[in-house]
């Protein structure tokens, strides 16, 4: 079945900085790499009508989202000269200031990773069915919309 063949990009809760650090360390053995580029999405404490966002609660159509992440990955490998690529996205509650998206691309040369990272992040924002409930300090909420 289609929904089982894709890697699971989702992690429950915020992405810890230790995890990000360990991901970088793991690449020290891959010595053909000359350039890494990393995008970290962080939950912003926006103030709307005087109320501050304290967290985002993420949900997703997980099977479709993992299929989309797979497609983004395949297309990025075709378009850019990449050695490797890793994408992690949070599900569940991520507090303001915590990391909800981690994209990590590596290549022999720097120009490829700048282009690839922007391409991947923009496609994630536009094409992947992830939904974000923005929770305010008074427990009311609104729904996040990417633009």
């Amino acid at each position: 079945m289609k929904e089982h063949k894709h890697k699971n990009v989702f992690k429950q809760g915020a992405i810890p900085s230790e995890f990000i650090g360990e991901s970088i360390a793991k690449h020290q053995t891959k010595t053909s790499i000359g350039a890494h580029n990393i995008f970290l999405g962080q939950v912003r404490a926006d103030v709307i009508d005087g109320k501050t966002i304290t967290a985002i609660e993420y949900t997703a159509y997980e099977d479709m989202a993992n299929a989309k992440f797979h497609d983004i990955r395949e297309t990025a490998f075709e378009k850019f000269n990449l050695t490797c690529m890793h994408i992690y996205h949070s599900l569940g509650t991520v507090k303001a200031g915590e990391i909800c998206l981690f994209v990590f691309v590596s290549s022999p040369r720097r120009k490829e990773v700048f282009k690839a990272l922007e391409y991947i992040v923009e496609r994630i924002k536009a094409d992947v069915p992830v939904f974000g409930k923005e929770i305010f300090e008074d427990d009311t909420h609104q729904w996040k919309v990417n633009n």
Binding site: I56, K125, V130, G132, K144, V145
Partner: peptide, 9 residues
């Protein structure tokens, strides 16, 4: 599936 606006990242 009915999918409201996407909000990933």
């Amino acid at each position: 599936a009915l999918l409201p606006p996407f909000a990933g990242g």
